[in-house]
Simulated assay, not measured.
Amino acid sequence: MLRTQFEEDLQQLHKDFFEMGLAVSDAVYKSVHSFIQHDKKLAQEVIENDVVINDMEVSLEKKSLEMIALQQPVTTDLRIIVTVMKASSDLERMADHAVSIAKATIRVKGTKRILEVEEKIATMASEVKTMIDDVMNAYVNEDYKAAKEIATQAEEVNDYFNIIYGFSIESMKENPETIEGGADYLQVVGFLKRIADYATNICEWIVYLHTGKILELHSNHEFEQK
């Protein structure tokens, strides 16, 4: 009977974690969409919904700790619970960066736009959202090989970051009117890069779930070291 209850709790933990992942993916999409479209109402929605994602993370951590304390799981079951705790923390940080993008949207006051940069940011954001969705699917399918593959997508995100960074700096040099907007672009792509880094962290936890080993799949820990 106890085992059945534990298995039900474990299934609920999986379900709640996946729902949190979907909420974070949605927040990232909406935050970038609001920034590109200068949609301050949508940006405000992202900011207000962040409390829901924070509550999800707190709830997952509480449930995980209760299951460890009361059920004393071993080996694979314990790895599942640890993975959910650690990965939900990464999801929460990703949502925080989505909020930062939304706040950048609200800050912008009719600055000179660089359309080529905004198009590239939209493409970069699409890559990041795909990465998040793929990570959550790899988690559900317990596909650690897919997780390793997904982690390599961070390289493409890094490439977009470098391209947009260079393009923005050049535009700011050539036209001083773009400096304020360009600074916002640099901030936003920095947040997107960090979100991709946290998605890679989750890939590492999926590998840990399967193998019991923590592998470093990051090619670049630049932001974690700061």
Rank of each mutant, 00 (worst) to 15 (best):
E116W: 03
E222V: 10
V84H: 08
A199C: 10
M1K: 05
P176E: 10
T4H: 11
N201F: 07
H210F: 01
Y208H: 03
E118Y: 11
L13S: 05
H33D: 13
E57T: 08
M67A: 02
A104I: 08
T178R: 05
M124Q: 12
D39T: 01
A104Y: 02
T178D: 00
M172Q: 07
V52T: 09
V84D: 10
T76L: 05
P73M: 01
Q37V: 07
Q153E: 13
H210A: 15
A147P: 00
E127L: 09
E119S: 14
H210V: 04
H218E: 01
L192D: 04
K193G: 07
H210P: 00
D197G: 15
G181N: 15
G166E: 13
A147L: 09
A69V: 07
G21Y: 05
L2S: 13
I214V: 13
N54W: 08
D143Y: 08
A104H: 06
L217A: 07
L91G: 07
I114L: 10
E142P: 00
K62F: 10
D134V: 01
Y144S: 14
N137P: 01
V128H: 05
V51P: 00
F161D: 01
K193N: 12
C203V: 02
A98K: 05
Q11P: 00
K129T: 12
L78P: 06
D39P: 03
E57M: 07
N175Q: 08
I163P: 01
Y208D: 02
I214T: 12
A147Q: 04
D50Q: 02
E116V: 08
S219A: 11
D55W: 06
E177F: 03
I214N: 08
M131R: 03
K86D: 07
A183V: 12
K109H: 10
E142A: 10
P176Y: 02
I80H: 15
G182I: 06
K86T: 12
M94S: 13
D159V: 11
G182Q: 05
V157F: 12
K62A: 14
D90E: 15
K129W: 00
S31H: 07
V117A: 15
